[in-house]
C-alpha cells in the first residue's frame, strides 16, 4: 500500500522492556521477563492499528511504554519524528497520545464528579481554565453521545457503557491525535460494546484519529482495523493488512489464533487455504487437538532464548529455528517473523 505517502505518527524501533525478578536472598539468580523484546513498527496517520495476542504476550506493557507510564529498557519511540522522552516532561507531546483502559470500573476516580474527571487533563495541560471546566466537559460529553445531565453524576451512578464513554471523553478532552485503546470493550456486554465500537468508528471518521487497538478478540480486529500486529512472547510475529490476514495468515502462530476463533465462529464460514492449498474449515470443537498442547506459554518462551520464541509450540519448526532468530520477511505489505511461513 502507499504507506510512504501517509504521515508517520509513531515510529518504534528496537523497543524493549525487561522485568527482573530475583530469587531468594542467597540465590540471587536473576530471572528476566522479556515483556517487550526488541520490537519495531510504524503507525501511520488515520490508521487503526490492532495488536492481538494471548494473555501475557506484552500488549499492555507496550501500551504503557507508548504512554510513558513505564520506563523502557532500551529502544526508541518517535512521535512524528520527535523523540518521546517522558523524563523531560514534554507535556505537549504527551497530551497528543491518550489511553483508554479495559476496565471502566477502576479507571475512573469514584470520588469525583463526571465533569471534574473529564476536564482534569485539559486543566493540567493548561488548555482551559478551571472556571470553564463545566462548559468544556459538556462539549466532550456530546462527542461521546451523552447529554449534559451527566456532568454532576458520580461514576457509580453510571452503567458500564456510560463509564467507558466517560473514559473516552476524558481522553478526547486534550485533543489527542493518537488513542491507545487497551481492550476497551472486553469488560462490556455485547449490546454496550456495540455502542462503544460504533462510537469509536464515528470519532475515527470525523476527527481522523489514529488508534492503536489492543484486543484478544479477532472479530473486533476484522471489524475495524486496517492492520493487525500479532504478538507472542514479547515479540512481533506478523504485521499484515487485515484483509490479507483473514484470507490466510502467514505466521504459524497467527494461523493457530485464527483457527481458534474459527472454532468459535459460525459453521461453514471463512474457509482458508493452508500451505498445500487444501481448504481447512475448522469449526468443530473436537478438531482442536493442537490447542491442547499450548499449556504453558511462559515455559515455552523462557527455555528458548536464542531461537524463535514460538519454537516450542510451533507445528512448522525445523532445526534451524532452534538456535537462530528468525529473519524478518518484509515488503511494503507485510512483515513476517518466521523462517518457514505459510504461502504468502
Amino acid at each position: 500500500m502507499d504507506d510512504n505517502k501517509k504521515q508517520e505518527v509513531l515510529n518504534i524501533s528496537n523497543l524493549s522492556k525487561y522485568y527482573f525478578s530475583y530469587g531468594s536472598l542467597f540465590n540471587v539468580r536473576k530471572n528476566i521477563i522479556r515483556a517487550v523484546d526488541n520490537i519495531s513498527f510504524k503507525v501511520y496517520e488515520g490508521e487503526i492499528f490492532s495488536i492481538i495476542g494471548e494473555t501475557g504476550c506484552g500488549k499492555s506493557t507496550l501500551s504503557k511504554l507508548i504512554l510513558g507510564l513505564t520506563n523502557k529498557t532500551s529502544g526508541e519511540i518517535l512521535y512524528k519524528g520527535d523523540i518521546l522522552n517522558y523524563n523531560l516532561k514534554k507535556l505537549n507531546l504527551r497530551k497528543k497520545i491518550q489511553i483508554v483502559f479495559q476496565d471502566p470500573y477502576y479507571s475512573l476516580n469514584p470520588k469525583k464528579k463526571i465533569y471534574k474527571i473529564i476536564s482534569l487533563p485539559a486543566i493540567k495541560n493548561k488548555m482551559i481554565k478551571k472556571k470553564d471546566a463545566l462548559h468544556y466537559s459538556i462539549q466532550m460529553l456530546k462527542k461521546v453521545g451523552l447529554d449534559e445531565n451527566y456532568v454532576f453524576k458520580f461514576p457509580h451512578e453510571l452503567s458500564g457503557g456510560q463509564r467507558q464513554r466517560i473514559s473516552i471523553a476524558r481522553s478526547l478532552s486534550v485533543n489527542p491525535e493518537l488513542l491507545v485503546l487497551d481492550e476497551p470493550v472486553s469488560a462490556l456486554d455485547v449490546s454496550v460494546s456495540a455502542q462503544i465500537l460504533n462510537l469509536l468508528l464515528d470519532l475515527h471518521e470525523k476527527d481522523n484519529l489514529t488508534y492503536i487497538f489492543i484486543t484478544h478478540d479477532l472479530r473486533l480486529v476484522r471489524h475495524l482495523a486496517d492492520k493487525v500486529c500479532v504478538m507472542y512472547g514479547g515479540k512481533i510475529m506478523e504485521i499484515s493488512p487485515v484483509d490479507r490476514f483473514f484470507k490466510g495468515p502467514a505466521h504459524p502462530y497467527s494461523k493457530v489464533l485464527l483457527e481458534s476463533i474459527l472454532a468459535y465462529g459460525p459453521k461453514n464460514i471463512l474457509q482458508f487455504a493452508d500451505a498445500d492449498g487444501n481448504i481447512n474449515n475448522i469449526n468443530n470443537i473436537n478438531n482442536i487437538n493442537n490447542i491442547n498442547n499450548i499449556n504453558n506459554i511462559n515455559a515455552g518462551i523462557q527455555k528458548n532464548n536464542r531461537g524463535c520464541v514460538y519454537y516450542n509450540l510451533c507445528s512448522r519448526r525445523q532445526d534451524k529455528c532452534m538456535n537462530n532468530e528468525p529473519e524478518l520477511k518484509e515488503n511494503e505489505d507485510y512483515r513476517i517473523n518466521c523462517f518457514f511461513p505459510y504461502n504468502l
Partner: peptide
Amino acid sequence: SVPALSKDY
C-alpha cells in the same frame, strides 16, 4: 450487535 465472521459481513 456483534461483529460476525460470516462471509457477507
